[in-house]
């Protein structure tokens, strides 16, 4: 079978589409000094954050790992941080139509999370005990805790939860974890090229 692209002068066949499959291509990549790496690889190499501070990155990893265990190692903080550099980022937050910049959303949300944890447990969120972190996440999933001063707590929970799902399950590897076929039509490029 063949089909005509919109311009009428170039054809893509399904066979060609499938021929472009490559297990190394269908990953989420992060720009690092070592080149394009998966978020997990970027984390393993301790790549510096470009937008988040180290403390913010640690808080985001901790939150991500409570929301979906494994998100830390999957590189949630490096994924979010890298996307925050993109002119048209692909973060889930895009759908939420939040009025501030994406960086401010995360920055204010993480700061609120840390303030809440300090007030409750005299500890930044990243260093809190697992049961303390879980209780806080349960609380922010439902309402703004007293003194919460960032984006709506439930929205912040929802967005970071989706980031965790994206980075852990949103790739071919993630589908494999669920034992569902990826059913690839056309692989994304190895490098983010958003427009």
């Amino acid at each position: 079978m063949s089909l005509t692209k919109d311009s009428g002068n170039s054809e893509i066949t399904r066979r060609q589409l499938l021929g472009r499959m490559g297990s190394g291509l269908l990953v989420l990549t992060v720009s690092t000094p070592w080149g394009e790496l998966t978020p997990a690889e970027a984390r393993a190499k301790a790549a510096s954050f470009k937008n988040l501070t180290a403390a913010e990155g640690a808080a985001l990893e901790a939150l991500g790992d409570v929301l979906l265990p494994g998100a830390r190692e999957a590189g949630i903080a490096h994924y979010v941080d890298d996307q925050l550099s993109r002119a048209d980022s692909l973060l889930f937050l895009k759908y939420m139509e939040y009025p501030t910049s994406q960086l401010e959303f995360y920055r204010q949300g993480l700061a609120s999370l840390d303030r809440l944890c300090q007030a409750r447990h005299a500890s930044p969120f990243a260093n809190a005990l697992e049961e303390q972190k879980t209780a806080i996440v349960r609380e922010i999933s439902q309402k703004n805790p007293e003194g919460w001063n960032g984006p709506p707590a439930a929205l912040f929970y929802f967005v970071v939860r989706n980031d965790a799902v994206d980075v852990y399950y949103g790739s071919e590897e993630g589908f494999r974890r669920l034992q569902v076929p990826y059913q690839l039509h056309l692989p994304p490029p190895a490098k983010w090229n958003c427009r």
């Binding site: 269908l26 949103g170 790739s171 990826y182 059913q183 056309l186 994304p188 490029p189």
Partner: peptide, 8 residues
Amino acid sequence: TASDLYSS
């Protein structure tokens, strides 16, 4: 174009 429509 059609070749921009990545499966993701």
